[in-house]
Design a protein around this nucleic acid. Structure first.
Lengths: 185, 185
DNA sequence: ACCACCATGTAAACGGTTACATGATTAC
DNA sequence: GTAATCATGTAACCGTTTACATGGTGGT
């Protein structure tokens, strides 16, 4: 599954410009699928070329024309096919956890700062996702947002709870002779 | 941060072959960082070229030679620099949640099957991560594995708890006239 | 017989990120 | 004045994924 499928998906909610699609991506699935203009605009061009969406120009006063995309019935069929054929993958890519894994190679203050940074980033996200749960219009939207809330809540609770201990242990390890074994074995 | 940095990282634990590095990747950080042979071998070649690791051939009986990699002191310095310079990103890419978001476009049995599939995949992972927590040799390893356990536990609890409701709601939506609005607005 | 494990690599394809390019409006 | 919002696109770059290529050992 790629950005093209997601574009077809958000267009089931109604016609949108590329810019609005990007906004919808942020609101609705930024916590489990990322996409920037650099992938959305080419995706829309390709979908248009394949006849899965149509585009029409809409005049605006004091602004350049905007291009509104609509899902075609062919697009609807392709979307369903795509969804039925998509294996439910779920991947995490976390430089944060890599950094924590190697915490003993870093100064303890740095470890503490990184954890604080994650807490500061996640805290406002909780409110955002909460709003997303409230605003849900389909059962799936509620499920996905609820998932985010449950998992983010657990993550936040865990890092808050474990921070002190990790920082203390890392500080202890650094005090000892040479745990950074070079020719160690 | 890329596979090269992770390779330097696992080599702080001792000398390893490319094959063993891959195994370590699976054991230690498969739940937050993925890498296959296709990225590990070229990474090692590049690190070797830059003098950050050395490699020596080791004979084996009834098998071709294996190539054992060791971290050099230059490699150690570069690793630390890299870790200090890495911003703590944390990304989730979940086709599973996309599918759930669009659950109302799928047959309810399919939605149920997808959720069952995720539960079946995650259940054995819990045991695996539990083993990982037990086997931890550094505070960071324990922290990272503990994070995985906390988050996976929350995810599993959530999907188990919400499955019935989602499937029921999706079935209801499908019964109604035409919620798949094409020219709906 | 067949599959899993050990063991190493290459090459093409694919897709996403980032930077560039442009430009007007509105609010602080 | 400066930043954010609206608005669209291109092109180079980067890294991962996937498929291909090879071949012996050990277990069911």
């Amino acid at each position: 599954m790629d950005v093209k499928t997601l574009c077809l998906g958000v267009l089931t909610e109604g016609d949108k410009t590329g810019y609005e699609i990007k906004q919808r991506f942020e609101e609705a699935f930024s916590h489990f699928f990322g996409a920037g203009f650099g992938s959305i605009y080419p995706a829309l061009a390709e979908l248009s070329r394949r006849g899965l969406v149509t585009r029409r120009s809409v005049e605006q006063d004091k602004r350049p024309d905007k291009k509104v995309y609509s899902l075609t019935s062919a697009g609807q069929l392709v979307l369903i096919d795509e969804l039925l054929a998509t294996p439910p993958r779920h991947k995490v890519r976390s430089e944060f956890l890599v950094l924590m894994y190697f915490a003993h190679l870093l100064p303890p203050e740095r470890v503490a700062a990184i954890i604080d940074q994650m807490i500061a980033r996640w805290e406002p996200l909780v409110a955002e996702i909460e709003a997303c749960v409230e605003a849900s219009e389909t059962p799936g939207m509620r499920f996905a947002a609820g998932y985010g809330r449950a998992v983010l809540g657990a993550a936040l609770a865990y890092v808050r709870e474990q921070k002190e201990e990790l920082v203390r242990e890392v500080a202890e390890v650094v005090e000892r002779p040479a745990p950074l074994a070079l020719a160690g074995e």
